[in-house]
Design a binder for these strands. Structure first.
Length: 209
DNA sequence: TGGCAGATTTTA
DNA sequence: AAAATCTGCCAA
């Protein structure tokens, strides 16, 4: 039951600490830019670096799934931080979230885009495309690319098979963080809770900046 | 290049 | 009926 694998140590990556998840959710979202998300399945490993995400809050945020209390769908949001919340949307796609805030609160960060790092061939097969900038440039796309669905709901992200890792140098010196309103919602559109790496070609195009 | 139908779960 | 989406098809 090792927490870290040799390959992770070599690259100096590690799971996020308990303390990390004690920050406000918007701060967590910002700090997740540059982190690695890795999913290992029978088909192999697929990994990407987070370049776009959104915070969903429990107070004064009607766009949050947890805004009207707990339901079977959103139950993972009320569970421990550092776990996954995967939901199905528009009859077709899964969206992946990192649960934040203390147990019982109901907050999360929606991961909207990744820069593919490893397992690119596998991702291309799953996504049926060979355009790398189209593999993970949207919340529904990245779950297909990584092979994430309901079976990956409510998993502890510090362990295999689905891991969220902090890297030694999380953002490159020239990378700037952009902030905007969240995408695809009608309520609380204007809240500055979307974070992305400016100019990164893997950020969702639908964004309009 | 831009708009729209369609895939169909969960909740209101 | 609308949603934290994306694709393919169609018309210019």
């Amino acid at each position: 039951m090792r927490r870290l694998r040799l390959s992770d140590c070599a690259k100096n990556t590690r799971p996020f600490s308990r303390r990390f998840f004690e920050q406000p959710t918007a701060e967590i979202a910002r700090a997740l830019l540059g982190a690695e998300l890795i999913h290992v399945t029978r088909d192999g490993e697929a990994a990407g670096r987070i370049v776009e995400c959104e915070a969903y809050l429990s107070d004064c945020d009607p766009a949050c799934h947890a805004a009207r209390g707990q339901t079977p769908r959103n139950a993972p949001m009320f569970g421990p931080p550092g776990h996954s919340y995967v939901y199905f949307i528009y009859g077709m796609y899964y969206c992946f979230n990192v649960v934040t805030a203390r147990k019982g609160t109901g907050e999360a960060v929606l991961i909207r885009a990744l820069e593919p790092l490893r397992g690119i061939d596998l991702m291309c097969r799953r996504r049926k495309t060979s355009t790398v900038t189209n593999l993970c440039s949207g919340p529904g796309k990245l779950t297909v690319a990584l092979g994430i669905s309901k079976e990956q709901n409510q998993l502890d992200l510090s362990k295999e098979p689905l891991r969220l890792l902090q890297t030694r140098q999380i953002l490159k010196p020239e990378e700037r963080i952009g902030v905007s309103g969240r995408i695809g919602i009608s309520a609380a559109k204007e809240l500055p809770l979307r974070f992305y790496i400016e100019g990164n070609p893997h950020v969702s195009k639908y964004s309009g900046k």
